[in-house]
Structure formats: structure tokens, C-alpha cells
Design a protein around this nucleic acid. Sequence first.
DNA 1: GGGATATGTGGACAGTGTCAACAACTATGC
DNA 2: GCATAGTTGTTGACACTGTCCACATATCCC
Lengths: 181, 181
Amino acid sequence: MIDGTRSRLIESALTLLREQGLEGVTLRAVGELAGLSRMAPYRHFADKKALLAAVAARVMTDIAAHIAAAVLPQSGQEERLRAFYRSYVEYAVEHPEEYRLVFSSMFVAGRHPEVEQAIDEIMSALSVDIAGGGRRDKAALAALLASAHGVAELVTVGDFAHKGIGADDIIDVMVSRAARP
Amino acid sequence: MIDGTRSRLIESALTLLREQGLEGVTLRAVGELAGLSRMAPYRHFADKKALLAAVAARVMTDIAAHIAAAVLPQSGQEERLRAFYRSYVEYAVEHPEEYRLVFSSMFVAGRHPEVEQAIDEIMSALSVDIAGGGRRDKAALAALLASAHGVAELVTVGDFAHKGIGADDIIDVMVSRAARP
DNA sequence: GGGATATGTGGACAGTGTCAACAACTATGC
DNA sequence: GCATAGTTGTTGACACTGTCCACATATCCC
């Protein structure tokens, strides 16, 4: 805990994000929740975007842990695949605001190094856990990540559930296709 | 042209979105570009979100047209699939701000009816153009849309291109998997 | 100790979405 | 033909936001 105040600010922002959505995350509110003034964040982050990038990086490690906890206990490849999809979508459904922040921070050109590092860690972990570390399969890995992300967004949109088709149906399609040799 | 001012406001907002990104779309700027005052949009839209929803719906029809123009000339199923993926990703890459707006407006709970209708149109067109109108394949159609969206986001993020893997590589994986019987 | 540096604070400012009150134009009843 | 109601547009004002600035305090190095 070299810098306790900094992580306390991140935590405050994350709390606000969860309870009130992205609109509720204002620098004034973050400072107040952390027991500081409205300008306090500027002593630890360049601006609001930098704070949000730090929150996003923090959330990414949560997501990675959630996925790893679901995938690692599985033994077969198909079971691992399914566990990956399910846990990924599950997180997006249960924490939509956080998930959304993570991907909007990925989208921005000129990303924050903190985010960059978190992405790299997740990718290499995935590579080992799912694909077995094959080197030719970068495209397959990207396809996996893209599929999961796509399903997560479609499901959180909620429209498809409404039309009688759930996440598991789509995941079934994805898994049965990817699991074939 | 029952309501010229309304569509002129939408067009102004779209221009600002293209030229300056979402941050440049302020109600004052939209009004000014349309030759009106800052409060003019409120006579045609409930609030800023409603205006953005209308812009999103407008963009969705553009996307649908772009995709249809690429897919319909193809004859084989695999060619149609590939054309779909490519044109979809292409639009996202060439018009990232618009694409982003469209999906953020889909994400919001309690969507605008205008957006809702545009989504329905796209889905049924897709169903006919790609899947041949099969009724059992709702899940496959959703998987297709999810995959394309996922690839588009990963590619616009730009990170994977940087790591020596392009959109076409991922699309190849998707198509070869989906095209099998 | 004393100076430099890091951390925290309140004042002020421009920009934003939005509410309210008012003006002008349009159409509709008689 | 004209008053009335409704639509469309404008300006004034307000609360809120991110951020710049100048100032206080605390901490560390010599």
C-alpha cells in the first residue's frame, strides 16, 4: 500500500459507478466519498479520464479473476470453453456498468498504459488457460474474445432474451463450432 | 419531408459527430449548425438522449444499406458470410464514432422506439439475406451478429492489428467455422 | 533548521443540459 | 376577417461539471 489515497479514490469511483452508473461518477462525488475535497483526485490522476482508466484496469483484473475461477477447475476443452463464455457473459450481466466502462476505455485511441498492461495480462492468461498456449492460434484466440464480447453485449442489451433466445443458446452455437478440430 | 427541421437537426448532429466525435455534439452546436438557437432541439426532441437516439436510428439504416450492398451480390453462402463480416467491420472502422453511438444507444435500458424499430428491420433483413430465412436458426443468427460485433470492436480498438493479426484473420476463423454443415 | 517537494484546499471560470417565461407564426373555429 | 389555440423558436437564468490557479500544510533531504 505505497499509495493508499490513490487506491481509495479508485475504490470510491468504483462504488459510485456500481451504485449510480457512469453519470454518478463525478470528481466532486469521488472526492467526497473518499473523505477529501473535490480537487483531491488531481493530485493522483492527470484528469478524469485517467482516473476512469485506472478504475477500468482495476475492474479488468476482477473480470480476469472471475473467469479464471470458472475455467481452471474444468478439465476438458469443451468444458473450459463453455465455462469461459458463461463466466464472461455472467460478469457483464451482473456488473453492466463496470463492463461497459472497461470496453469504452479500450475503445479510446491512445490508451492508458495501466489499461494496456491489464489487457496483455488477460490475453496471455487466456492463451494458456483455453488454447493451451499454441502460437499459431492467435486468430482463434481473438475470435474467442470477440465472440464472448459480442454475446455479452447482445445479452446485456436484453433484446434477445425478450425474443425467446438466451445467452446459453448462443453460447451453445459458439462452443459447438469452436470445439470441432 | 413532413418535418424538415427535425431531420435537419439530426443531420447537424451527425455532422458534428463525424467531425468532432461525440464530445463535439452539444445541443448548442447542433442548434447553431442548423441555423437555429441552442434550445431549438427541445421543440423536436424530449432531451439530448432522444436526439442521439434518433441519430443512432438514422445511422443504423446506413449500416444496413452498406451491408446489404455488399452481401446481396454474392451467391454462395460462404461468400455471403464473408461479405457480411467484412462490410460490417469495414463500417465500424471507417465510421467509429457513429458505430460507437449506435451500440451505446442499444445498450441503454428503456430504449427509444425509433431505435427499436431500426433494430428489428436489420434483424429480419439479415435473417433473409444470410440465413435464408430458416426459423430454427435464431441462435445462429444471434451468434453471427455477436461475432461480427465482437470482431468490429476488437479491430477498432486497434490493438490486435498492432500485434500482427488483422480483421481478415479473425473473419477467416469465423467463416470457416460457421460455413460447415 | 530550512528549503524543496508532495499533498490537499477553496475560489473562480467557461461550458453544459435544462426549466421557465415570452415572442412569432400557423391554422382553425366562427 | 378575426380571435383563439397550438406549434415553433428565442433569450434569461440556474445548477452542475471539469479544470486552472493560488494558497496552505505536511513530509522529506541536506
